[in-house]
Simulated scan of single mutants.
Amino acid sequence: MGGAMNLDPSNLNGRMLINIDSEEEGTLLVSCSGGIRSKMSVPVQYEDVSEQYSTLAIRIRGLKGGHSGMEINKERGNSNKLMGRFLMDLNSVVDFKLASINGGAKMNAIPREADGIILVREEEVSRVQDKISEWSKIFANELQGIDPDLCLKVEKLDENITRVFSDDSKIKVLRMLFLMPNGIKSMSMAIKDLVQSSTNLGVVTTTNESVVFDSAVRSSVKSLKKSICDDMIVLTEILDGSIEFESDYPEWQYNPQSEIRNVFEKVYEDIFGNKPHISAIHAGLECGLISDKFNGNIDQISFGPNIYDVHTPNEHISISSVERMYSYLVAVLKEIK
């Protein structure tokens, strides 16, 4: 990415780019998403525990997780969002104290686990257990065939908790978790089955001063990425929180009038006798950075030979595929000329 980020467009006269960086023969990439990281914080006021409570750990386990770009379309459960739904409903029937809430490992990964530590009066423990049973069935029904190993459980802890969130802080944190945008926001109408914009609440962390919500926002349309960010800004303002954005990278928007795509399609059919697969990726590519350098005024396409187990010690490439794609590239260049 460093080379693309530091490219000076004034050094180039051409406005057509062939990117040989794809990993599947016969697939032509014509778009990629841009993205940005959001970090939202809700300040927490703590108060001392003055009564006798039972300490319970609400845990979510067994979700598949996955890459928040490539696998967001699989509708897998997000442990942070599931925890938010459970705790909001529990709060309507049990007057619990919230000590901490944590979930997820990486901002750009669909979170698999989450933990909420709560304090309840001993006589209300059974009501919490009843809610666990109720929501276990709800989640199992919603995620059947997607996340069959989901486990929602409660554990009684011997830990002595001495401070908890104030009631006002608790409800603001729960509302943020419950209302936070997450998942697919729009689908492309130009490319079948392509996620156009999405957001993933990847990490929730309790600190001494606040609860922090880390999300990855992606879109192949700049204005839709901004729209998701604007939703987050408004939500943060309503709940007296703060928000920061970082690691912004540009998208490569699909161009329905692309001349280079038409050439690649025609030549592929001439050589191989069938149509190539036109695809896009809901993740970042150098093409997004290069497109941004030229304010979108560059015609691009990405293709390549079959490469397997990319970015692992087992990465390898098909030599015969390289030969075919080389011949294909030469034919494309002749057609352009």
Rank of each mutant, 00 (worst) to 15 (best):
A4Q: 11
N6L: 15
P9F: 01
S10E: 03
N11C: 07
N11E: 04
N13W: 15
M16P: 12
M16W: 12
S22M: 09
E23F: 11
E23N: 10
L29Q: 12
V30K: 07
S33D: 00
S33C: 00
G35A: 05
G35W: 07
K39S: 12
V42N: 15
P43M: 05
P43K: 03
V44N: 00
Y46R: 13
E47L: 06
D48G: 12
D48K: 11
D48N: 14
E51S: 09
Y53T: 02
S54K: 09
T55K: 08
R59D: 15
K64E: 12
H67S: 05
H67Q: 04
H67W: 02
S68P: 05
G69P: 04
M70Y: 10
E71F: 12
N73M: 04
E75F: 06
R76H: 11
G77D: 03
S79E: 05
G84H: 09
F86M: 00
L87A: 09
D89Q: 03
K97F: 13
L98K: 04
L98T: 05
A99D: 08
I101A: 03
N102W: 11
G103Q: 00
A109W: 02
A109D: 04
I110Q: 03
P111S: 12
P111D: 10
R112T: 11
R112K: 12
E113F: 13
E113H: 13
D115M: 15
D115K: 15
I117Q: 03
V120D: 10
E122F: 01
E124K: 10
V125R: 00
R127Y: 14
D130F: 09
K131N: 06
E134I: 15
S136V: 10
F139S: 05
A140F: 14
N141H: 14
E142D: 14
G145Y: 10
D149A: 13
L150R: 00
L150D: 04
C151S: 11
K153P: 15
K156Y: 10
L157N: 05
L157D: 08
E159W: 04
T162C: 02
F165V: 14
F165C: 14
S169E: 02
P181Q: 06
P181G: 04
I184W: 01
S186I: 02
S186E: 01
S186W: 01
M189W: 15
S197Y: 05
S198T: 01
N200H: 03
L201P: 01
V204P: 00
V204H: 00
T205E: 14
F213S: 08
F213K: 07
A216N: 08
V217L: 10
V221E: 07
K225D: 00
K225E: 01
S227F: 07
I228G: 07
I228E: 08
D230L: 12
D231T: 07
L235R: 07
I238K: 07
S242C: 15
I243M: 03
E246H: 13
E246L: 11
S247D: 15
E251M: 11
W252Y: 09
P256W: 08
E259W: 14
R261Y: 15
N262A: 13
Y268G: 12
I271N: 07
H277T: 14
S279K: 03
A280M: 01
L289M: 13
S291A: 12
F294R: 14
F294N: 12
N295V: 02
I301Y: 03
G304N: 11
G304E: 06
G304Q: 09
N306Y: 07
D309Q: 12
D309L: 13
N314A: 04
H316R: 03
I317H: 00
Y328T: 09
V330L: 03
A331G: 11
L333W: 06
K334H: 08
